[in-house]
Amino acid sequence: MAEPLQFLYRIVPTRADMLVTGLTEHEMQVMATHFAHLQKLAADGVVLMAGRTLVAGPETFGIVVFLASSLAEAEAVMRSDPAIAQGLMHCELFPYRVAVWADAFRLNT
């Protein structure tokens, strides 16, 4: 069996001022589902990392680096993201390869 391929998808809010003016109740619910979805995929070994820029203007974006067996599967994983499926985010998919990963990588929150 071939080793899984790495992919990256980039997401951008469809409402450009979403992070400036604040999320609506509906957007908060979708984003909570989006976060839980990514956490589940990480626990399942699909998502390697996910995060977003810390700017609130129209230049903000998020990325998800993940594993899939094919481009078609990667597209399906990306499209299953609730933020994308429910229209809160635009998305763009890229084949990707992590070149350097620190052994001591830990999330500092």
Rank of each mutant, 00 (worst) to 15 (best):
S70F: 07
L8S: 14
E25L: 08
S69Q: 15
H26T: 10
A43D: 15
F105Q: 11
F61K: 00
P4F: 14
E27M: 02
F66Y: 12
V12G: 04
R79E: 13
A99E: 10
G62R: 03
G22R: 09
L8Y: 02
I63P: 01
V55Y: 01
Y96I: 00
S80R: 09
E92Q: 12
R106C: 03
A56H: 07
Q86C: 02
F94W: 07
E73T: 06
S70Y: 06
H90A: 13
M28C: 10
A56L: 11
V12N: 07
A74N: 05
A99R: 11
L23I: 08
H34K: 11
M89Y: 13
A76D: 09
L71E: 07
L38W: 09
P13F: 09
A72W: 00
A76C: 01
I63C: 10
A104Y: 04
H90S: 09
I63Q: 08
V47T: 08
A99W: 04
L107M: 07
V64W: 00
L19R: 08
L41M: 14
I63M: 13
V100A: 11
F61N: 03
V55W: 02
F7Y: 15
A83L: 01
T60G: 11
A72C: 01
A36M: 10
Y9Q: 11
M28L: 10
T60W: 01
V100I: 14
R79Q: 12
A76P: 00
D103L: 11
P4T: 11
V12S: 13
L54Y: 04
T24D: 03
V20H: 03
R15Q: 15
F61D: 00
M28R: 15
E92V: 07
A76Y: 01
L67Y: 08
Y9M: 12
P4I: 08
Q6K: 08
A16M: 06
Q6D: 12
M18N: 07
Q29K: 13
G57Y: 03
D17Y: 04
V77S: 02
